[in-house]
Design a protein around this nucleic acid. Sequence first.
DNA 1: GAGACCTTCATACTAAAGTACCAATTTGAT
DNA 2: ATCAAATTGGTACTTTAGTATGAAGGTCTC
Lengths: 138, 138
Amino acid sequence: MKKTIFVFSALIVSLLVLFKISTYSYTSGNSRIELVISGIAILFFGIGWYINRRSASKKNIEPEVINLDKLDDLGISKREYEVLVQIAKGLSNKEIGDTLHLSESTVKTHVSNLLVKLDAKRRTQALQRAKELNIIAI
Amino acid sequence: MKKTIFVFSALIVSLLVLFKISTYSYTSGNSRIELVISGIAILFFGIGWYINRRSASKKNIEPEVINLDKLDDLGISKREYEVLVQIAKGLSNKEIGDTLHLSESTVKTHVSNLLVKLDAKRRTQALQRAKELNIIAI
DNA sequence: GAGACCTTCATACTAAAGTACCAATTTGAT
DNA sequence: ATCAAATTGGTACTTTAGTATGAAGGTCTC
């Protein structure tokens, strides 16, 4: 985010400089006008490239957009979802409890509820279902 | 993020307009030059956008190719891999035995070997590792 | 404020999963 | 043909996972 602002600010500044040069060349003859035009062309080519790359890379990180609306449909609560994410990371109930500051007992409760809501018998099946429903990252 | 890009783009456009107005006052006769410059700018912006989009979409066509060569590196046998695939489907050891016509005991042996070879403590962690290594489908 | 959830945790239990051995075939390569 | 690895299966055991049930505090809505 900060980087984006920085890059755009730099672009604006360079634009300012380019236009300043262009206005100079008006008064002192049209000798450098081609240079200015090509500079602007390169600059905007870069801008177009950059903007598209940003939006494209975002799409690549999460090709299937995580559908958080489905969580409501399935009745999965916020905390339960957090547990689900940790399951996907391959953690045990004990480890999930440590990372989320919960007792193993509480994690078991959340997992049990998740299994019912995802219509699964095991946590591995829950992961499979969650992937089908696009509610967790691949 | 998109909003930020939009705002900055709008800023650049307004800058363009401002400079156009300012240069009008300098040389009220040569209004064609600015038109040409801004036209070129827009054109190259579009070109940059388009080219990047082409290269980005090419990458998307083959997002994650399953790397079966890594199976050799990890020493995972054919049968073990078949078990791994069934684990990814969310099946239990008993169910895997039924689908592959094996005893649960044999499945357990394969799973245990898989866990060692994938450096995992649980089958869920094995799935996570296998996904990282691109040896199973997403 | 009563009811409906969510969150947290506990106990006690059953069911899987996983480990550590061992052992008999089968397959593949040298 | 021989040797190593793969495949299959077993027993006995420990560890997780999952179920059932209860309970208490918090939040939000009607």
